[in-house]
Design a protein around this nucleic acid. Structure first.
Lengths: 197, 197
DNA sequence: CGTGTCTGACTGAACGTTCAATGAGCGCTC
DNA sequence: GAGCGCTCATTGAACGTTCAGTCAGACACG
């Protein structure tokens, strides 16, 4: 009857991940300094001292949260469509996927924004993540310029105009329904065109 | 020689403002929780106890910082050009003024962004300030649509596309030189137009 | 003008609390 | 029995806040 349902290693990793995930929730909700190790331990149903069995310090825990929940790769995937697909077809779904990703990772996003204001180490990671995303999308847009679909322009800026409003929209309670307007405004412009209806 | 150089009232107000301004610096730099009353007192060259002569509590001090340094009015002023001036002429200077305002108020902006992630009272103020700004600019843009300069579109979104990238650009170390591209992209769009060179 | 009273800015030690972190010890599983 | 997951009592530092007390200037009265 002593079937080892889970190995020692998996037990270790499972507990560690449970602690990290609970820490992310707490950090996002209350802020790093206001979330106590006791809070975390209670949320996981363990004693406070156990946290120091898995992490060297509270700050080590914070960095571990970043290791586990950073989503630079997902962001790049979402923001890099195939170069041969037209922007008019692809940008709306990019913006929607980006929005969905932000919703899914909201806790992490709120945490990292908050802590990057005072933690230079996190600020650099967050800035890099932002800029990498922008440049990824910019590369696609540049490809569409080269393909003759889009006019020549600063594609890093158009990438920012697609992504940044989505972030702030999400943080300040805007509506998802407006996402399509973002793409429309950017593609068509808001100037009344002479030669069109 | 015993000329009373400053009145009691001015002394009070001066000291109070000195404490608030120093608190803003500290809160922006280290974060609310990491900035101690002792830090603040030292920065002002006074004893820690004096802070409680001017403020009921640390949180009262935080709210007082917001009272004194909130800039909703300046933001509305910057984002509301005269309705009869054409967007093509006015938007670039709006974006530049907005950027300059953010630079001037950087400490406050960083503080409020950080603290609004965990303090619901501040979050509401910050969200309101953001949305008021967006709607102010949106009203101007709607006027330009009505005037026949701009095509009909969701002006709240175009207002977001002008302001939000500026904020994030500022926070993630983008270049000021790119501001004009924002306006250009929004007015003209990035689609290659059929009837133009 | 001079003298006494009062106000209010200011100090700095002290208090109570909270927190991150430690480490000895317990029991379970290889 | 060795090692690991875990508990729990404990520590020491740091924090917000309080408070008794000091001192200089403002004010009222003679």
């Amino acid at each position: 009857m002593s079937a080892p349902e889970i190995s020692r290693k998996d037990l270790h990793e499972g507990r560690r991940n449970q602690l990290i995930d609970a820490a992310l929730s707490l950090f996002a909700e209350k802020g790093y300094e206001n979330a106590t190790i006791k809070d975390l331990a209670e949320a996981c149903g363990v004693a406070a001292g156990l946290v120091y069995h898995y992490f060297e310090s509270k700050e080590d825990l914070l960095l571990s949260v970043f290791e586990r929940h950073g989503f630079a790769a997902e962001m790049e995937r979402v923001l890099l469509p195939a170069f041969d697909r037209p922007a008019s077809e692809v940008l709306l779904e990019v913006v929607h996927s980006y929005y969905d990703l932000l919703v899914e990772r909201e806790s992490f996003m709120r945490m990292i924004i908050r802590e990057s204001m005072t933690n230079p180490q996190l600020e650099e990671r967050w800035t890099t993540m932002c800029n990498t995303g922008v440049q990824t999308l910019a590369r696609y847009l540049a490809a569409r310029v080269a393909a003759g679909e889009l006019r020549a322009h600063d594609t890093e800026i158009s990438a920012r105009m697609l992504t940044h409003p989505v972030v702030v929209l999400r943080l300040t309670g805007g509506s998802v329904a407006q996402l399509s307007s973002i793409v429309d405004c950017l593609l068509e412009g808001i100037n009344k065109k002479s030669g069109q209806g």
